[in-house]
């Protein structure tokens, strides 16, 4: 039996095509390093490990919602409700423990279940009724901000609740700040754990690979016999869970619930995801890129603090410019890819 073998090696130009998916994340990491060493070179004390540790403290809730957002965006959707769900979760924690007097662990569990359930509902509406994700999650944005304000229009403190001390309980590493080390609270570990779990799920499970497949080409995924419905709804479940978890972490971090906090958090999360190299149209990106994107956001704010005479809005403007640069970069890469293939 004569079997000839069909060989095709990616040519140099097509090999480059395979590498293009690493270009955006490479750019993010380069940017991160540039920001960090720029800070070290210009400011005293910027090289202290605690500066980096603080990034994981201040941005822990943002990191968690950005991870959920990564799932949604990878699948080709968007979730505008995360900021409101987060604020609602924090407020519910406060109200149920302080006003209703329920035990705190039970309340946390309830909040997480509720966020997950919300994700399930909105995911089902998006998939089965073919409602645009933008509109469907807009419902959540309005609804939970409204419900939060209905619970309380002013700050609610949770200082009395012992349980919420846990979050800021910290671990000293390298002998603490005095001896050149740093400290990190439990809630930061929780956020880092979320990133780790998300990484494993996205890269090493069928669900995770399904998210990429659906984001790459939903029609194809359907014809390949992949569980498209489960995947599309699943990403909103993940995002809903992450948003409520972020709300719980915020409760730990501040021990108070402000009904107007996290307005626009969904935009910060989207920006972090895109700057982390994830394609807004879905199908390409990495959750570790999202980590880098959140770190960029945090470092920008840290630099502004160190500079002292700059205002925080500069971070937003720079973020917008970076967003523009990354979107144009992705667009350019996509265009050159199209050109090479036809």
């Amino acid at each position: 039996m004569s079997t000839q073998t069909l060989t095709e090696r990616p040519a140099r130009s097509t090999l480059f095509d395979g590498m293009t998916r690493y270009i955006p994340i490479g750019a993010t990491v380069a940017l991160l390093l540039a920001l960090y060493f720029g800070g070290v070179a210009n400011y005293r004390n910027f090289d202290k490990p605690q500066v980096i540790a603080n990034l994981f403290i201040d941005n822990a809730p943002l990191l968690v919602i950005a991870v959920g957002m990564t799932f949604v965006i990878l699948s080709g959707g968007i979730d505008l409700s995360v900021g409101s769900v987060m604020a609602f979760s924090t407020m519910t924690c406060a109200w149920l423990t302080v006003e209703a007097g329920l035990s705190a662990p039970l309340v946390v569990a309830l909040v997480l279940v509720f966020g997950t359930g919300w994700g399930l509902l909105i995911g089902a509406v998006i998939h089965y009724f073919n409602v645009q994700p933008f509109i469907a999650t807009l419902v959540g944005l309005f609804l939970f901000r409204g419900l939060t304000l209905q619970i309380s229009t002013s700050d609610m403190s949770m200082r009395e609740v012992k349980f919420f001390q846990w979050g800021m309980t910290h671990v000293e590493v390298g002998g603490g700040i005095r001896q050149g080390g740093f400290w990190l609270p439990y809630l930061s570990f929780a956020a880092i754990a979320v990133v780790a779990v998300a990484f494993v799920v996205l890269h090493y499970t069928r669900f995770g690979r399904g998210v990429y497949a659906v984001g790459g080409n939903e029609q194809s995924a359907l014809l390949m016999g992949l569980p498209v419905a489960r995947t599309k709804i699943g990403v909103y479940v993940v995002s809903g869970f992450c948003a409520s978890l972020a709300g719980v972490l915020a409760a730990f971090a501040t021990k108070s619930a402000d009904p107007l906090r996290h307005v626009g958090a969904e935009l910060d999360a989207i920006a972090a995801v895109v700057i982390g190299g994830t394609l807004l149209t879905g199908g390409a990106g990495f959750v570790l890129g999202t980590l880098a994107g959140v770190m960029v956001w945090g470092l920008l704010n840290t630099l502004i603090q160190f500079q002292g005479n700059l205002s925080s809005w500069w971070a937003r403007i720079v973020m917008g410019v970076l967003l523009l640069a990354f979107i144009l970069l992705q667009r350019g890469l996509a265009r050159s890819g199209e050109k090479r293939r036809t």
Partner: peptide, 12 residues
Amino acid sequence: LILMIAGRGIAQ
């Protein structure tokens, strides 16, 4: 979306 995120910074 770019200006939605950066626009308020510009206003400030």
